[in-house]
Amino acid sequence: METEEVKGTFKPELIPEECGGDIDDYEEALHVLMKFVGSMSSALEQVSGRGANAIVYQAGKRMGHEAGKLVEKTDDLEKALQELSEILGMEFYFEMWKPSGQDEYITENNGETVVKLLFMDCVVRQTLRRTGLPQKGPLCYLLYGYMVGAVEEVMDIKGKLDIDHVGPNACLKTLTIKWSGK
């Protein structure tokens, strides 16, 4: 396919007047990025083995701490998750989930607070499907780290996120909060 070269004048400017590109350009860029990230993840796993998960987790956690700084600190887990959901936006759209036999979303278990999160829209899942990689691999640890980092930052506690189940349309994860870990 032939591509048309765009020629124009470039001036120093504080705010670019023109971003350029239509939806096809953005789509192409998105797909190249997906392939690039997928390829990086698979190479990382090849070189570092299970250490790849830890590296990606750490990267996600750092991002989560940064994002958490934008949210007001609170001890209310439900409020924290609500605000984080807004920051994560529609690309990581999640909701609290509970089985029909359970009364509350948030439960207490041996001094730990447990809540199940259902991630419906996820860019990581889309990237894995674009590149043909399996779920639950290193890239999934990015979101794992992100959530843990963000919750730690907002609530000033220690948390962990376990992957319960992955599917093509949604993934169920369990967020566990250790209050003693302040």
Binding site: M120, C122, R125, H165, V166, G167, P168, N169, A170, L172
Partner: peptide, 23 residues
């Protein structure tokens, strides 16, 4: 929870889910 793992695994594509959030 509409993860749709069942859709992916079903060899006959015998199921349909209605009123779910489609990712």
């Amino acid at each position: 929870m509409a993860c749709l793992s069942c859709h992916e695994i079903c060899p006959a594509q015998a199921m349909e889910h209605h009123d779910i959030h489609v990712a």
